[in-house]
């Protein structure tokens, strides 16, 4: 489903993350790029080079905001100053949708700056969905929540990760930013079948997809975004777009960042799978309800 209410009825194509080492190349060469994703928190400032660069980018390109600190899963109320700044940035970027992670990361106003995994409980799903609704009402923009890579499982969890994701997005009536690499990383760390995950989420809610690379350690995978996506991630991506429809896709590359062309060419490999999916003429996903409200 390329355009739906969760991505502002847009069809954005294949984009890459806007990263500092590429600023000069982008501003001087003006390469053709479908869209850029920015990390919202890097631009929640009052002036200076970050906003100067952003304004130049906005004059030429479509930009979508991706956050790392709204912490939908933290128990505390949203930070009003943070939200006010995000809303001001939305007015600047005109982002058709906004994404952040299905995780927690702050406790009583202290921030971890990390994407910490949630216990998959019904109570947590309800509380998280309520917070997403509050934030969406304030920001007045569609929200898509991203599944995170996880390295642990909690005793208190009552369901699988995909059941939890489904419950949250259905209770909040919001979109999903489906991070295919994160599903792969978690499937190896938690020992589940990543295709089960992809098959059992509400496909019509997928507003965007992420692809990325990771690092393989002896006993686990770490979501480092410092490589090109490996083959298993591309295969999962191919399956995901057959299930969910072709949607806005973004390659994340955040560390050991190579040249702009290398990152962009890697992202454009998505077209191979997008073309295959389009040729297959798979019907758009039907609206489904995956989770049972409790």
């Amino acid at each position: 489903m390329p355009a739906n209410k969760f991505n502002g009825y847009t069809d954005y194509g294949v984009g890459i993350g806007l990263r500092i080492p590429h600023y000069d190349h982008i501003l001087s060469q003006k390469p053709t790029v479908d869209w850029f994703e920015i990390i919202s928190e890097n631009f929640l400032v009052d002036g200076g080079r970050p906003l100067d660069v952003l304004d130049q980018i906005l004059a030429q390109y479509r930009v979508v905001q991706h956050g790392v600190a709204l912490y939908f899963g933290s128990a505390e109320a949203p930070n009003r100053d943070h939200l006010r700044r995000v809303k001001k940035l939305i007015a600047r970027t005109k982002t058709p949708w906004l994404s952040d992670h299905l995780c927690w990361g702050s406790v009583d106003g202290t921030y971890s700056h990390d994407l910490l995994p949630m216990p998959y409980t019904h109570a947590a799903a309800r509380r998280t969905a309520e917070k997403i609704r509050q934030i969406r009402d304030f920001l007045e923009v569609p929200i898509a929540v991203e599944n995170v890579s996880s390295y642990t499982e909690f005793h208190v969890s009552e369901m699988t990760e995909w059941e939890f994701l489904s419950a949250v997005v259905e209770l909040a009536d919001c979109g999903i930013l489906l991070d295919v690499n994160n599903i792969y990383v978690s499937s190896k760390n938690q020992t589940f079948n990543p295709y089960d995950y992809l098959d059992q989420i509400p496909h019509h809610r997928v507003a965007q997809m992420h692809i990325a690379g990771h690092t393989k350690f002896e006993k686990y995978l770490l979501d480092t975004h410092d490589h090109a996506p490996p083959d298993p991630v591309w295969k999962l991506y191919a399956h995901a777009i057959r299930q969910c429809g072709v949607t806005a896709t973004l390659l994340e590359w955040d560390d050991k960042i190579p040249t702009f062309d290398e990152v962009h060419n890697e992202a454009l490999k998505a077209h191979e799978f997008i073309d295959q999916a389009r040729e297959a003429k798979i019907p758009a996903p039907r609206e489904t309800v995956r989770a049972r409200a409790r």
Binding site: G17, R19, I20, P21, I39, E41, N42, H66, V68, H101, H113, D114, L115, S149, A212, T215, F217, L222, D223, T224, H225, D226, E252, D254, D255
Partner: peptide
């Protein structure tokens, strides 16, 4: 060294 908040995991 340039600043950048991103969502990847430092190893």
């Amino acid at each position: 060294l340039l600043r950048g908040d991103a969502s990847n995991a430092p190893s």
